[in-house]
Computed example of a mutant assay.
Amino acid sequence: MSEALDRTLAALADPHRRRAVDLLREKPRRAGELAESLGLSPPAMSRHLRALRQSGLVEESHPEFDARVRVYRLRPEPMAQLKAWLDAAEDHWADQLTALKAHVEAKTR
């Protein structure tokens, strides 16, 4: 497993961060909006957003009108890597189950 995938999985291990990702799938959001939606204090939300940024799952930008406001949006690359890894795992287990089924059927004949 790659380090990037490890960071993605570690970031998604927390339920608040998964919920933040769910909200960001809908649209980019301000940090305060995320904190309010999740029922978290601004410092707690800041810690979760830092973890999501460090994992590469989200990026932040500042509107031209106010550099104090931070808007977060999802980055697609980490989720695409996670999906590819999950697809490979699913393929592996599908092959294993097909082989097991063939073995069991051969034994019952």
Rank of each mutant, 00 (worst) to 15 (best):
S61E: 14
G39W: 01
L9T: 03
S37A: 15
H16G: 01
P42T: 00
L57R: 04
A13F: 11
P76T: 01
L5D: 02
S41F: 02
Q81E: 13
R25I: 13
F65M: 10
H48L: 09
M45F: 03
E33G: 08
A51P: 11
D14H: 15
L5H: 00
R68V: 01
A31P: 05
E64M: 04
L49R: 10
L9D: 00
R68I: 00
H16E: 12
E60W: 13
A4R: 08
L40N: 06
G39E: 07
W85C: 06
A20E: 11
L24M: 13
M45S: 08
V21L: 13
D6A: 08
V58G: 10
P63E: 09
E33A: 11
A44R: 09
L74K: 13
A51F: 03
L57K: 01
D66E: 12
D66A: 07
P63R: 02
R70L: 14
Q81K: 02
H16K: 14
L5R: 07
G32R: 07
R53I: 10
S2H: 08
P76A: 08
R30M: 09
R75L: 10
H16R: 15
V58K: 15
A4V: 03
S46F: 04
R18P: 11
L12R: 11
H62E: 14
S37F: 02
H16L: 07
R73N: 14
E26C: 14
R7N: 08
A51H: 10
R70Y: 09
D22V: 09
L38D: 10
A67D: 15
H16P: 05
R25Y: 15
R47H: 12
L38N: 06
K83A: 10
T8V: 12
Q54W: 12
L52Y: 11
L52S: 08
L9R: 07
A84C: 02
D66C: 04
L34W: 06
L57A: 00
V71K: 12
V69R: 07
D66G: 03
Q54A: 15
G56E: 03
S55T: 06
R50T: 14
P78D: 03
L9G: 02
E33M: 01
K27Y: 11
E77K: 13
V71C: 01
M45D: 01
E33Y: 03
A20F: 10
S2I: 01
A20Y: 12
H48P: 05
G32I: 01
Q54I: 09
L49D: 01
R68H: 07
R18I: 10
R73P: 01
D6T: 02
R73S: 15
R68M: 01
S2E: 01
W85D: 13
L5C: 03
H16F: 06
R18K: 11
S61Y: 10
R73Y: 02
H48D: 14
R30F: 00
L57I: 06
G56V: 05
